[in-house]
Design a protein around this nucleic acid. Structure first.
Lengths: 147, 147
DNA sequence: GTTATTTCGGACTTATTTATCCTGTTTTAA
DNA sequence: TTAAAACAGGATAAATAAGTCCGAAATAAC
């Protein structure tokens, strides 16, 4: 039932994509974001606070407070978010091998799986928040996937 | 911290790969498998029992009992195992979209992500247990990944 | 200054996954 | 016939992930 990323990471991605899309509106509260994404408010709040700590967003306290991207959407990659929340094991570890498998004594699919991992990793690194804003071009994506 | 598949699925794959590799030795006990894979014995036992129910392996009770593949290794794909244990959501659901995203109103990476999912799905469907037995060719893999 | 609203941070609860235990049944071999 | 070894399966326990709560500090508007 696992779906590549943790719930936390999924919510983080969705929240940042939301912040990117409505960047013009300035600071947005956790409550506002949670309502629009249909995600538990307190959970979003907690996740955004941790993203604040790691520097991906900036926060403002007090009435009319909330969160905002720390950098331009085109400078925040999906990998930045994923690495911060879930880590990079999914892009590095060989899943199908017996425990003894390693680069020196690889299992038969080691190379192939590595290839898939590299493609995934490449896609995440080269996909930025701005690619999700309606109207953006898909050129970069198509190139990456077919590379 | 999620790594594509659940622990259960990972152990299932490793156990079946082990059964495929040592198919000549006939019935192997959960204890034997667990020892070689360094996985909790009772957990392996439980997983193999559920695989017995779904027909991927056959079991024999009593002293000298154990498990064996229900079909030839070349007829069991990784997808068979994954679909049985974890389901296929990871190959179908769009993770990056706002909840409102769907094929009719796709988010900007919908197509690209679908492509990645199809590649992954294709790889899992076209990779069979026999591909992991030492000495097997990698041709089929390389074709799939680069297709 | 007071009040309302929001982030901050930690403690807490709940749900799910992972792992273990125990009792029963089956089968083999001595 | 009996003992040992193994699967069957439900109950339980431990660990992790997901989600909630609350008091405190900050800030804007009145």
């Amino acid at each position: 039932m696992t779906v590549l990323f943790s719930k936390k990471c999924e919510y983080a991605l969705q929240s940042l994509l939301f912040l990117a899309e409505f960047q013009d509106e300035g600071i947005l509260s956790a409550d506002h974001i949670a309502n629009h994404l249909d995600i538990p408010k307190e959970f979003v709040s907690k996740i955004l606070r941790s993203l604040t700590k790691s520097g991906l967003v900036v926060s403002q306290r007090g009435k009319t407070g909330g969160f905002q991207l720390a950098h331009a959407p085109e400078r925040i990659s999906l990998m930045d978010v994923i690495a911060d929340i879930d880590g990079t094991a999914v892009f590095e570890d060989c899943l199908f091998c017996h425990p003894s498998c390693n680069p020196d004594a690889p299992c038969p699919v080691h190379e192939t799986w590595s290839l898939m991992q590299n493609q995934l990793s490449h896609l995440m690194k080269n996909t930025h928040l701005d690619n999700f804003i309606p109207g953006q071009s898909l050129h970069q994506f198509q190139q990456d996937v077919n590379a």
